[in-house]
Computed example of a mutant assay.
Amino acid sequence: MVRRTGKKTRVAAARRPEVRLPPLRPHEGGGLEPDGDYDGVELAGLDLSGGDGAGALFLDCALRDCVLERTSLVRARFVDSVLSGVRGVGTDLAGAALRDSEIVDARLGGVQLHGAALERVLVRGGKIDCLNLRDARLTDVVFEGVVLSEPDFGAARLERVEFRECVLRRADFAGARMRDVDLRRVSELDVAGGVEGLSGAVISTAQLMDLAPVFAAQLGVRVED
């Protein structure tokens, strides 16, 4: 919802997570277990490639420098947790729930987060290619200093979402529904499709000029000198 104060237009700011991890104990198991219960543990430097943690609960946990190549975390839940330096291709987080959590300096590709729910989540630094957020719900989410290449926000619902000093390349917003989404601090905004899905977002004047050809194409307007 856009609120007005005097002559200025304001966008409701996203509420950032405040993750305060307790003293963690090392994870003693080998890999992940379906429907596993991970409470107050640190998984550090592990190769979890091909692992199956579908339906697992991570509460007050840290995943640091782990390899998540083709790792299944379908419908997993991350609460008050940090994923730092994780990397891999094909990580499956479809239908997962992340709340009051941080993703820091991730290097991921082909991440499946369709149908996921993100609430009070900070995604900071790193690079994520082909991020699939179709039909996802993002509430109070901040993307900060991260490079997102070909992210798919198709039919996603975004409320109080901020993009700060980010790069968005070939982004698709087809069918997205936005409320209080702030794109003004995106350093590179490249929309490949679904420009109509930006309704409800706020962009800068400079971004409007950059996106003018995309808007014109959407409206069927030809621009000729």
Rank of each mutant, 00 (worst) to 15 (best):
53 G>K: 01
53 G>I: 09
55 G>K: 02
55 G>D: 04
57 L>E: 12
57 L>W: 11
58 F>H: 04
58 F>L: 03
59 L>N: 06
62 A>F: 10
63 L>F: 11
64 R>I: 04
65 D>E: 13
65 D>N: 15
68 L>I: 05
68 L>M: 11
69 E>D: 06
69 E>A: 10
72 S>A: 15
72 S>G: 10
73 L>E: 02
76 A>R: 06
77 R>F: 03
79 V>N: 04
80 D>I: 00
80 D>L: 01
80 D>R: 01
81 S>K: 08
83 L>C: 14
83 L>H: 03
84 S>E: 05
84 S>F: 10
85 G>Y: 14
85 G>T: 10
87 R>S: 06
87 R>A: 12
88 G>S: 12
89 V>C: 05
89 V>Q: 12
89 V>W: 07
91 T>S: 09
91 T>Y: 02
92 D>E: 14
93 L>D: 04
94 A>R: 13
96 A>Q: 05
98 L>C: 13
100 D>A: 04
102 E>V: 15
102 E>G: 06
103 I>A: 01
103 I>E: 00
103 I>H: 01
104 V>N: 00
104 V>G: 02
105 D>P: 00
111 V>K: 11
112 Q>A: 15
112 Q>P: 08
112 Q>T: 14
114 H>D: 07
115 G>L: 06
115 G>A: 06
117 A>E: 03
117 A>G: 09
119 E>R: 12
119 E>F: 00
122 L>F: 08
122 L>I: 14
123 V>R: 05
123 V>K: 09
125 G>K: 10
126 G>W: 08
126 G>S: 05
127 K>M: 08
128 I>W: 07
129 D>R: 15
130 C>H: 15
130 C>V: 14
130 C>Q: 14
130 C>P: 04
